[in-house]
Every structure is written in C-alpha cells, then in structure tokens.
Amino acid sequence: MNKTLLGKVALVTGGTKGIGKSIADKLQALGANVIVAARTKPQENLDDRHFIAADLLDSESGENIAKEVIEKYGKINIIVNNAGANLSPSGGYSTLNDEHWKNELELNLMSAIRINKAFLPAMIDSRNGVIINISTGVAKQPLWDLTMAYSTAKAALNMYSKALANEIGSKGVRVNVVSPGMVNTPLMADFIENIATSNKTTKEQVAENLINQVGIPLNRMAETEEVANLVAFLVSDDAKYINGANYLIDGGSLPTV
C-alpha cells in the first residue's frame, strides 16, 4: 500500500471502534501518525497509536486534546471529527425533552466545533490541513420517529462545515463532510437489538425492515472500511481541490440527486 500520508499527523475522534476505528486503521496504513480520542481506552491493542482519553461533552476537551497533540507532534494535518451518536429515544417530538436535545447538539455538533477551533490556528499557520466532519444521511432525510434530534444536530454540522470551508479555504485548510447511511457498526447492532427486544422480533427482521424503510437500493448496510476508504481519499492530495463538499455514502438511499 502506498504511504501517501507519510509524515502526516491525524486525529480521529471516537477512533476506537466502528467507523472511527476503521478510519484510524486506514490512515495509519497510509503512513500517518494517528491519534485517537475517546472516553475510554479499549481493551484491544491500539497498534501503538497515541490515545487521549477525553469526554467530548466537556467544553474544555478540544483545548486539552489540541494542547497534548501539538506539544507531542508540533503540528496537526488531518482532523476527522467522527465522534457522534443518536442518543435519544424513538417516538418523535413528544418523547424528546430538553436534555435529549442538549446532548445531541453537544456530541454531534459542538464537539466538532470545539476540536476544530482549538486546532485551526496551527493548521492556518502552516497553511496545511484537512478537516473531515462525519455527518449522516438522515441529516438530509430524517426519520422523525427514530432520529429527529440527531438529524437536526447533524444538519447543523453540515451547515457549519460549509461555512467553515468558505472561511478558511483561502488559508490552506480544506473542510469536507462525509455522510454515511446505515453502517454495520457496534452502535447499529445495539440499536437493532434494542428494537428487536422491544418488538419481540428477531434482529434479522429488524435489520431487513430498517433497510426497507430507509430504502437502500444496494439492499445492505455499508461496512466501516467502505466509509474509511472515502475519508482516506478526501484527506489525500488526490482531493486537494475538493472543499466544502458533502459526500453521501448510503448505497443510494437518498431519493434525490
């Protein structure tokens, strides 16, 4: 494999499992020095990656992570704001209280804003940087009964990303969004299992129903490595003229072009 990211320093938030782990694996395979930030360190070997324990709901987390990374590596080239989750109960507006809305916005929007703000001075000084904010297809096509607050927070992330790309593109820093659809992750597995338990049905039936509800022409969920491959392209020099874009990777489920 070509070491196209050799010498680059990359941060992946939520980089210990699911999509984040696959992104971290891919960037490291391409030669980058990879730092992962998450609440808890996993039991398995991180292949000598620099791990930072951080609760991204903490308003000081961005500054703390940036300080540690810049002190150790002296620079940052790539940020992948992957940390995020649908934390709220299903059922639509009546099931959502202020705490649900606050938690969704903090994790899915504000965590990325804080990380980027803390690192951007170093990126702008070097006129070299790429930021990828991981969003979701349901920010464009929300499932009101399942993802109302989550979709709203990610839609705000999309708008923020475009505004930031417009502001700092001339300063040597690119910003893009990757929006996965349904992905085969541990979080998705838990989500499906919870629905199956509540509805007294099988996980396979729930997964099939969700795929049909979302309407995925490829008739399957994405694998995490497929999302990682797209991110790896966007942070590379092969994508150096791509800025302010939002790439859907959803198997064709969004019914518009």
Rank of each mutant, 00 (worst) to 15 (best):
M1P: 13
T4L: 07
T4C: 12
L5F: 05
K8N: 08
K8M: 05
A10T: 10
L11I: 10
V12F: 00
T13A: 04
K17N: 08
S22W: 00
D25Q: 08
D25G: 10
L27Y: 03
Q28G: 10
A29G: 12
G31L: 03
A32V: 00
V36S: 10
A38T: 12
N45L: 00
L46E: 06
D47P: 09
H50L: 09
H50Q: 08
F51Q: 10
L56P: 12
L56G: 10
E60C: 12
E60N: 15
G62Q: 02
E63T: 13
I65R: 06
K67T: 12
E68I: 05
E71H: 09
G74K: 05
K75V: 05
I79G: 08
V80T: 08
N82L: 03
N82Q: 06
N86D: 13
L87I: 11
S88E: 14
S88M: 03
P89R: 06
P89S: 07
S90L: 00
Y93G: 09
N97Y: 01
D98E: 15
E99N: 14
H100P: 07
K102Y: 03
K102N: 12
E106V: 13
L107E: 04
N108W: 03
N108V: 04
L109A: 08
M110P: 05
A112K: 06
K117L: 03
K117H: 13
F119Q: 08
M123C: 11
I124F: 04
D125T: 15
T136V: 10
T136W: 02
Q141F: 06
W144C: 15
D145K: 11
L146A: 15
M148K: 00
M148R: 03
M148T: 15
S151E: 01
S151R: 01
T152P: 05
A153Y: 03
A153I: 08
A153W: 06
A155Q: 03
A155I: 00
A156R: 02
A156S: 14
L157I: 13
M159G: 15
S161A: 10
A165F: 02
A165Q: 05
G172A: 08
N176Y: 01
N176V: 11
V178G: 11
P180N: 03
M182H: 04
V183L: 06
V183I: 14
N184L: 10
T185N: 09
T185Q: 08
T185Y: 00
P186C: 01
L187V: 07
M188V: 01
A189T: 12
D190Q: 14
E193W: 01
S198Y: 12
T201M: 09
E204W: 00
E204R: 11
Q205P: 01
A207W: 10
A207V: 02
N209S: 15
L210H: 01
L210S: 08
L210Y: 01
G215C: 11
P217Q: 03
P217C: 07
R220I: 09
R220V: 08
R220F: 02
E223N: 15
E226K: 11
N229D: 14
L230I: 14
V231S: 11
F233S: 14
V235M: 12
A239Y: 00
I242T: 14
I242W: 01
G244V: 02
A245H: 11
N246H: 04
L248K: 10
I249Y: 01
I249C: 13
G252A: 01
G252M: 05
G252T: 02
S253F: 03
